[in-house]
């Protein structure tokens, strides 16, 4: 069953501070979309080590947005990519798509 992203961590951190919450979400959104684009480009060019570095950054956002299983998959994918193995790419893309849809509405 697919996990659903959530803002539990963000809201707990903001502790009712809506200005902070909005600022944080805006930065997460900007970095997320940039990193997804960078990841896609690196992957297309078979620059797997560079792709792994971006997966590492994405992993932090995946956790922040509450996808704990997604974060574990990202960790495995990051390690695999460093070893030239891209077998989790499609699964990882599903996670990114899930996050993209969630963040588009924020």
């Amino acid at each position: 069953m697919q996990e659903h992203p959530n803002l539990l961590y963000v809201k707990e951190l903001a502790n009712g501070d809506e200005v902070f919450e909005s600022k944080l979400l805006s930065v997460i959104k900007k970095e997320l979309f940039e990193e997804i684009e960078n990841y896609t480009n690196c992957f297309k060019n078979e620059q797997f080590v560079d792709a792994a570095i971006i997966v590492h950054k994405l992993r932090n956002k995946i956790s922040i947005l509450g996808l704990y299983k997604g974060s574990e998959i990202a960790k495995e994918h990051e390690n695999d990519l460093r070893n030239g193995n891209n077998s989790l790419h499609l699964v990882f893309l599903d996670i990114l798509e899930n996050l993209t849809q969630f963040m588009h509405n924020k």
Binding site: L13, A14, K23, L24, V27, E31, K57, N60, I64
Partner: peptide, 13 residues
């Protein structure tokens, strides 16, 4: 931290 997201979070903490 190279991620702005993380810097903002640590700042808030």
């Amino acid at each position: 931290d190279d991620e702005k997201t993380s810097r903002i979070i640590i700042n808030q903490l």
